[in-house]
């Protein structure tokens, strides 16, 4: 499968254990860099009240929604308890030539 790889940002644009917002084609995504230097991508809005996750706090493998502290594992998108019960959609990520690419499918 060819995929639909999109150039999101430079690898250095994201601090370790942090997240940035990436908007593309009218959609919004969140791109993460884990403490062990891996990159991940999910939908950008919390499944609870449509708030930008990129304003939230990354701790280890967890992103916390800035508004009500809904928690997700950003590697799998799994919701980690109240108030969030719907998982986040995740997207494949690769780093090529210092650029972070995400596959929007």
């Amino acid at each position: 499968m060819a995929g639909n790889w999109v150039d999101a940002c430079a690898a250095g644009d994201i601090d370790q254990e942090d997240v940035i917002r990436f908007d593309h084609s009218g959609r919004t995504f969140a791109i993460y860099r884990s403490p062990d230097d891996s990159y991940f991508a999910t939908d950008g809005l919390c499944t609870h009240e449509q708030v930008h996750l990129a304003d939230g706090l990354v701790m280890d493998e967890i992103i916390e929604c800035p508004k009500h502290n809904g928690r997700f594992d950003y590697r799998t998108g799994a919701a980690k308890g109240a108030p969030v019960c719907v998982d986040l959609k995740t997207y494949p990520v690769k780093v090529e030539g210092g650029r972070v690419m995400i596959d929007l499918g």
Partner: peptide, 8 residues
Amino acid sequence: GAVARDMR
């Protein structure tokens, strides 16, 4: 966006 992270 300016408030939430530091408050957490």
